[in-house]
């Protein structure tokens, strides 16, 4: 099967190269974890795939005309906005069904009146459940309790079973082992 995403000796960065060369092939229906110590550029790799960071060498190939969803560690600026969870999900086309009960019953509340963990999971769900062939997640378990991590793991498997390819950056080893089909470790660049 032709991969949805292929990285060939990719070296990415912002002003200067910040990652070691990375090779990766991601097929539809597959969940791959990307781990490694802080500062090796895991988030930068995701940013490069999403066209936010620079590619210094190597290349990124993805299937033509695919829809990409990107979750970053930046929290959507909802504080001070009159916006409910239901309205947020409608914006990205994410479904309201499948949400954990502790969130489903708060869908009509204003987002900045939810707890940090509830708000994080809704913001993540809006990206994760939006129609997409390639889903990129950056530290999705931040701010989540054990119930949230379990629900996220289950839903990732559901999305993969429906045909999406998923690349997850995480430092949470237990989550990566439970959620991902395989895992790559990004090494520090040679001159670091």
């Amino acid at each position: 099967m032709k991969p949805v995403l292929q990285l060939e000796a990719l070296v990415a960065g912002w002003q200067q190269a910040a990652t070691a060369a990375l090779d990766l092939s991601l097929a539809a229906g597959e969940i791959v974890g990307l781990t490694g110590p802080n500062g090796v550029g895991k988030s930068t790799v995701l940013a490069a795939i999403a066209g936010r960071a620079r590619v210094f060498s190597g290349r990124i190939v993805h299937a033509p005309a695919i829809r990409i969803s990107l979750q970053t560690q930046e929290v959507p600026p909802v504080v001070g906005l009159p916006l409910s969870g239901r309205e947020l999900l409608a914006l990205t086309g994410a479904a309201t069904t499948g949400l954990p009960s502790w969130l489903a019953e708060r869908l009509d509340q204003r987002l900045d009146r939810l707890s940090g963990g509830q708000r994080h999971y809704l913001a993540l769900w809006a990206v994760l459940d939006a129609p997409a062939e390639l889903i990129l997640l950056d530290e999705p378990t931040n701010n989540l309790d054990a119930a949230g991590v379990r629900h996220l793991t289950t839903h990732l498997h559901e999305r993969a079973a429906a045909g999406s390819a998923i690349l997850v950056v995480s430092h949470d080893t237990a989550f990566v082992q439970a959620a991902c089909d395989r895992c790559l470790t990004l090494e520090a660049p040679a001159d670091a």
Partner: peptide, 18 residues
Amino acid sequence: SSRLLLLRLYPDFSRLRG
């Protein structure tokens, strides 16, 4: 309206969909 809200909350969302 939806696109303006999306642009503010998820700046990359629309661009990543071409």
